[in-house]
């Protein structure tokens, strides 16, 4: 399929992820939506990589996957710590910057 289809799909995936980030109250779901966004980016990279026949896109995507893993780990750790303190993961309630 022409690359543009993949690009549109990747943008759509990114958009869905953004919607999830902006509109969900549960912090856990928000983190999942962030993963969706990253995957959208990966898809675009790989599509271009195939079109140009250049493996650099793959390398970049690889690094992004590794990065996403690290970020998910740390983010979840923070979330757990936040939950311990505030007993909630509802983002509407966790808006105070200083206790």
């Amino acid at each position: 399929m022409p690359t543009i289809y993949y690009l549109i799909l990747s943008f759509a995936l990114f958009l869905i992820g953004t919607t999830g980030v902006l509109l969900r109250r549960n912090a856990l779901i928000v983190l999942m939506a962030i993963e969706l966004q990253l995957n959208g980016g990966n898809l675009a990279l790989i599509a271009f990589s195939r079109q140009l026949g250049d493996l650099k896109g793959h390398v970049f995507a690889f690094l992004i996957i590794a990065l996403a893993a690290a970020e998910a780990a740390v983010g979840l750790a923070i979330l757990v710590g936040l939950f311990r303190g505030r007993q909630t993961v509802n983002l509407d309630e966790i808006t105070l910057m200083k206790r």
């Binding site: 953004t18 980030v21 928000v30 509407d92 808006t95 105070l96 910057m97």
Partner: peptide
């Protein structure tokens, strides 16, 4: 800007 609501920041970003 400063109300601590991260999602609001992202919305403004978009």
């Amino acid at each position: 800007q400063g109300n601590g609501d991260g999602q609001r920041y992202m919305a403004v970003f978009a």
